[in-house]
């Protein structure tokens, strides 16, 4: 069992200035997930008549992309290849002080406490992160189109992105290039996606710039912190796709 000091960002709403507040939690089991530890804190706060800490979560099994905490200076905490809900308290020691902050980026404004607005990602997706399908009744069966194993694997790896925003949060420039690179790549690698490839990459990059994300300076931090291991190769692929699409007009 562990006793911990938590330093948590509290902010009433989007307009509040916000501040770090210290809390103590006791008897935390090392088998708990990080979010379960947050639940314990919130129970404590509710019982004492205080406002619980607002934080995003949904599936709690690392697939939905909702949880989003910056823990001790790292997106999703000090472990690799996991989301915050998969982070376990065994990664910490009795007596530790844990700093918990929301994602920080102009394009991810804080709504309340540790919850940020990630609709900018949705708008990028809406700008081109899809394949238009003609459902006239004679649509070709996707399985009838031959695709190499290598391309299928690479597309699947890119499609593993859950859009949690850890790449933006950890980037010193708040760049969304890993997210957009993954979304562009998952289609660019497949024949079904190639029909709209040029418009897709131009529109998604344009929306990314409009949302106010920063420029990629290739530090590689996003790849390290990404819970799904999305590779930097996807950024290079997007750069190639964009440059060639733009040159074609």
């Amino acid at each position: 069992m562990m006793n911990l000091t938590l330093k948590i960002w509290r902010q009433k709403d989007a307009n509040d200035k916000g501040q770090m507040v210290d809390y103590k939690v006791t008897d935390i089991s090392e088998h708990m997930s990080f979010l379960e530890m947050m639940d314990v804190l919130n129970e404590q706060l509710v019982n004492s008549g205080d406002q619980p800490v607002a934080f995003d979560h949904d599936c709690r099994e690392g697939i939905c992309g909702m949880c989003s905490l910056y823990i001790n200076g790292e997106a999703h905490g000090p472990d690799r290849g996991i989301t915050t809900c998969q982070l376990h308290m065994r990664m910490f020691n009795d007596g530790d002080t844990i700093t918990i902050e929301p994602w920080r980026a102009s394009a991810f404004p804080v709504i309340k406490d540790l919850i940020v607005d990630r609709m900018s990602f949705e708008r990028i997706q809406q700008a081109g992160g899809f394949i238009s399908v003609n459902t006239s009744g004679n649509t070709q069966d996707a399985n009838a189109i031959p695709i190499s194993k290598h391309a299928a694997d690479e597309a699947m790896d890119a499609a593993a992105c859950i859009g949690c925003g850890a790449c933006v949060a950890t980037c010193k420039n708040s760049s969304a290039m890993l997210f957009v690179g993954a979304k562009v790549s998952q289609y660019a690698l497949l024949p079904q996606g190639q029909v709209e490839a040029a418009d897709r990459v131009k529109n998604m990059v344009e929306q990314m710039d409009l949302e106010g994300f920063g420029n990629c300076t290739n530090t590689g931090a996003c790849e390290i912190e990404c819970p799904k291991g999305i590779s930097l190769e996807n950024i290079a692929r997007m750069n190639r796709e964009f440059l060639s699409a733009s040159l074609k007009g």
């Binding site: 330093k7 960002w9 916000g18 770090m20 910056y70 001790n72 200076g73 790292e74 000090p78 700093t99 902050e101 920080r104 980026a105 102009s106 394009a107 804080v110 950890t170 010193k172 420039n173 708040s174 760049s175 106010g212 994300f213 920063g214 420029n215 300076t217 290739n218 530090t219 590689g220 931090a221 390290i224 912190e225």
Partner: peptide, 28 residues
């Protein structure tokens, strides 16, 4: 690019940011 990146980061900085955990000093 540096000015644009600073604007993208915004006014609120992390209280604790462990850049050394995932990138080189040179790159940052």
């Amino acid at each position: 690019l540096e000015l644009k990146n600073r604007k993208a980061v915004g006014v609120h900085k992390y209280v604790k940011n462990n850049g050394a955990a995932n990138s080189t000093w040179m790159s940052r």
